[in-house]
Amino acid sequence: MNKQNVRAIAAYERKGFSVRESVCVNIGGGFVMDDFIMSRSIA
Rank of each mutant, 00 (worst) to 15 (best):
N5R: 06
G29H: 07
A11W: 06
G30S: 04
I9A: 04
S22H: 13
R40Q: 09
M38W: 00
I42V: 15
F17C: 01
F31W: 14
C24T: 11
R40Y: 00
I42H: 12
R40H: 01
R20T: 07
M38P: 00
F17M: 08
A11N: 12
V19Y: 00
D35H: 12
K3I: 04
E21I: 03
D35F: 05
Y12S: 02
K3W: 05
V19M: 05
N5F: 09
G16W: 04
V23Y: 02
E21T: 11
Y12D: 03
F31E: 05
M33W: 10
K3A: 08
S39G: 10
Y12L: 11
K3S: 08
N2E: 11
D34I: 03
F17A: 06
D35W: 05
V19H: 02
V23R: 15
R7H: 13
G28L: 06
S39L: 03
F17G: 02
N2L: 10
V6P: 02
N26I: 04
V19F: 03
R7C: 11
Q4G: 14
Y12C: 05
N5C: 07
R7W: 08
M1C: 10
I9Y: 03
Q4N: 14
I27K: 02
N2V: 07
V6K: 15
I9V: 15
A8F: 09
F36T: 00
R40C: 09
G16T: 04
V25T: 12
F17I: 06
E21M: 12
R40E: 04
M38K: 03
F17W: 08
G28T: 01
F36W: 07
F36R: 01
A10W: 06
G28Q: 01
G30T: 06
E13H: 03
V25K: 11
S18K: 13
V19R: 06
V19K: 07
N2Y: 15
V6S: 15
V25E: 13
V6Y: 15
A11Q: 09
A43K: 15
S39F: 09
I27H: 01
I37N: 06
R7G: 15
V23M: 13
R14P: 00
F31C: 09
F36D: 06
S39H: 11
N5L: 08
A11P: 00
R20G: 12
C24N: 14
V6E: 15
F36Y: 15
A10D: 11
K3L: 06
R20M: 11
G28V: 04
S41C: 09
F36P: 00
I27T: 02
G30D: 02
R20S: 13
M38Y: 00
M1D: 02
S18T: 14
E21P: 00
A11M: 13
E13V: 06
A8Y: 07
E21G: 13
M1W: 00
N2I: 05
